[in-house]
Nucleic acid binder design. Structure first.
Lengths: 107, 107
DNA sequence: TAGAATCATAACCGATCAGTTATGAATCAA
DNA sequence: TTGATTCATAACTGATCGGTTATGATTCTA
């Protein structure tokens, strides 16, 4: 259930792609044409970014006639939030006796 | 103060580099040699990853004689947590009248 | 002082990837 | 039905990047 955040990080690493996702979070469902108008890149580039976002589960598509409507799925960000939380908690517990022992054994 | 998370996302996108950061969060301060033992790549590769992590503010280095001790700076994850939170909140407010209006005006 | 140990940097290589243009497939409108 | 619209895919390109080996700089030790 705690799926690894690798694909999420890779997908969100590109600023253009992250911008498209942000746009969808801010304004809700939009067509490819509307997203292209704000993306600053060509329509095929936007389509490819949307395919990547979809693969990562970050967006959903809803075909309707000629156009395809995309919407954000912020729930997919959960593993990323979990990972961040976990790193912070590891750090909080860093001075536990066991952790300290493991550290000393290691180097 | 709400600095953009671009460098953070790019830095954490690589699994090897993220693994090194995780190791530092779990076990605390470690030398380059200790990190290399777990990284599965060569020592120069680890040094380059550490340089990238340092540039992103995610780690601190403490030179001591021949060896350099590195430690995680999980505080640097704050912009990432903020961004995630913001995306979720945008989505929560998606059906506000103004947001809805903007959406309609846009396409 | 000579050699070993630790880390960083240089130089290079192959793979990945984000962008482009061209084109195809599907749908709507005149 | 013909042409326009909307989107996706194919094919290609240049840049980025993570990995390697080789080497240098520094520090400890025998």
């Amino acid at each position: 259930m705690p799926q690894n955040p690798d694909l999420l990080f890779r997908t969100l690493a590109d600023p253009t792609r992250r911008g498209i996702f942000e746009q969808l979070c801010r304004r809700g469902e939009q067509t490819v044409a509307a997203l292209t108008a704000h993306a600053g890149v060509s329509q095929p580039a936007v389509s490819k970014h949307l395919a990547a976002l979809k693969q990562a589960g970050l967006v959903r598509d809803r075909p309707e006639g000629r156009q395809t409507h995309y919407s954000a799925q912020p729930k997919a960000l959960a593993p990323l939030a979990d990972w961040t939380q976990q790193m912070a908690s590891f750090w909080d517990g860093r001075f536990d006796a066991l952790e300290d022992l493991l550290k000393r054994m290691d180097q």
